[in-house]
């Protein structure tokens, strides 16, 4: 049997490799969050949006840094994923949902406004309102004259009065 020439051998190997590679399929976000619901973006807008979303995702191997700020390879991979998903037209909501699905709410640096988490957003506002009311009440109360006049039994003031009147 005559072997194919070297050129055909190489072509054959390359084709086979391409086919094998083409069949390689890492899990894709579309399986989990559905098809892209936004429009694909590119160029400067892509850089901008990718950065905006990267600051919302927590680097899982770092101590609290976002993937935008972290130099670790894990963060670089995740940033790459964010860019790819954005360029395919996934929305911010979908991208965040995708990461939340595999890492849990831990990966979201901005707490989701749902269930018990909403308290972290509402309690400070509530505190501000209650505090403001208390301040106004206190101002009203302090407008009344005090129960007793300035302490005349304060030793320091008494000593000073003596000193001055001597």
């Amino acid at each position: 049997m005559k072997w194919p020439s070297r050129r055909w051998q190489i072509t054959g190997v390359v084709l086979f490799a391409l086919v094998a590679v083409a069949q390689m399929k890492a899990p894709d976000a579309e399986q989990f969050v559905g098809p892209p619901r936004g429009t694909p973006i590119a160029g400067d807008a892509l850089d901008q949006r990718a950065h905006e979303i990267a600051v919302l995702l927590r680097c899982p191997v770092c101590q609290g840094l976002s993937i935008a700020d972290s130099p670790s390879e894990m963060a670089t991979n995740m940033k790459g994923q964010v860019r790819e998903l954005l360029s395919r037209g996934f929305t911010e909501q979908q991208i965040l949902s995708y990461f939340e699905r595999s890492y849990g709410q831990f990966v979201l640096l901005k707490p989701k406004f749902s269930g018990v988490n909403s308290l972290v957003w509402t309690l400070p506002v509530f505190a501000l309102l209650v505090g403001a009311i208390l301040v106004v009440i206190k101002i009203r109360k302090l407008e009344q004259p005090p129960a007793q006049t300035a302490a005349s039994d304060d030793d320091y003031v008494a000593r000073v009065r003596d000193l001055v009147n001597k």
């Binding site: 600051v55 976002s66 849990g104 979201l108 640096l109 989701k112 018990v116």
Partner: peptide, 18 residues
């Protein structure tokens, strides 16, 4: 949240800045 529901969540820079 972990004490009440046993789940881990994060409160990071975007919250504090906001």
């Amino acid at each position: 949240v972990e004490a009440l529901k046993g789940k881990q969540m994060s409160v990071g820079r975007p919250y504090f800045d906001a």
